[in-house]
């Protein structure tokens, strides 16, 4: 059961602090993420989740603390550095361009080219066939590779974004609240995608404030509260009620839960 202790974490954040002027957004957060696991990062609004993943993806530089990738210390100056280290972030809204086709979106920034008479051209055939392949692997049925992303549902867009990140070599995938705006069925599709990606050996960092979604796919759970972590719990070591209470910081939610029948 503790086989993970011998494996090097694919990414380790040690004692990360981030101060924005007088505001302490993160007060020393540590986390280890292993290949092939889905690590859920839970926390209420303002808990520091966003700042933490921004530090992980190179968007902000932590005031203090160390980042290790495969046991090697790294300093991310910008998102490109993090991407090169195999860390990809899928944002909820800023992932896809709705007016463009799926295949053009899929290869955006990584367009395949072929040379005709010494000039580089976009290799549309290659892009289209690779996109169709990746999409059917993820269980999305496209009318064709030139179908616009705008015609896909929110869940499908997330799935396209996730499979794009994996296709281009992401080893750590940070999903920033991928399910927060989705319906039940779309959520289950995204969670299924997470499961597929995890089985390929990619580490998934799943940020959410929905305990149900976290428990459905998570292997380990870290709860952030007011810039601090309450430690990491293994799957099975923690009950949904405990998670819920940790996120809310205890008290206030307990009374609420009674009146809502425990289904927050």
């Amino acid at each position: 059961m503790n086989s993970q202790a011998t494996v090097t974490p694919i990414i380790e954040m040690r004692n990360i602090r981030k101060h924005y002027g007088p505001v302490i957004a993160l007060a020393g957060v540590s986390i280890k993420i292993y290949p092939g696991e889905c690590h859920c990062l839970l926390g209420d609004n303002g808990a520091g989740k966003s700042t933490f993943i921004k530090a992980m993806s190179g968007v902000v530089k932590p005031t203090q603390g160390d980042i290790f990738v495969n046991g090697e210390q790294k300093f991310f100056n910008n998102p490109r550095d993090a991407m090169q280290a195999g860390i990809a972030t899928v944002h909820q809204h800023l992932a896809m361009i709705p007016l463009m086709s799926v295949s053009r979106n899929f290869f955006l920034g990584n367009e395949p080219t072929k040379k005709i008479a010494g000039i580089q051209f976009y290799d549309r055939k290659h892009a289209d066939s690779k996109t169709m392949e990746a999409m059917s692997k993820m269980g999305i049925n496209l009318r064709g590779p030139d179908q616009a992303v705008g015609t896909l549902s929110g869940g499908e867009r997330q799935t396209v974004a996730i499979s794009r990140a994996v296709h281009f070599g992401a080893r750590v995938l940070i999903l920033d609240e991928p399910t927060s705006a989705l319906g039940v069925r779309q959520t289950s599709n995204v969670l299924a995608t997470i499961d597929k990606v995890r089985n390929e050996g990619v580490a998934v960092v799943f940020i959410t404030h929905n305990v149900r979604h976290a428990l459905a796919v998570g292997d380990r759970f870290t709860v952030l509260n007011r810039g601090q972590t309450h430690g990491t719990a293994m799957r099975g070591d923690i009950t949904p009620e405990d998670l819920q209470n940790l996120m809310a910081g205890g008290q206030e939610l307990a009374t609420l839960e009674g009146s809502l029948g425990g289904t927050v």
Partner: peptide
């Protein structure tokens, strides 16, 4: 492709490099 992306959603395009 980059022309389309820059006009479609500049922020998403930047995120994609």
């Amino acid at each position: 492709n980059w022309i389309f992306a820059s006009g479609g959603d500049a922020e998403a395009a930047r995120n994609s490099g």
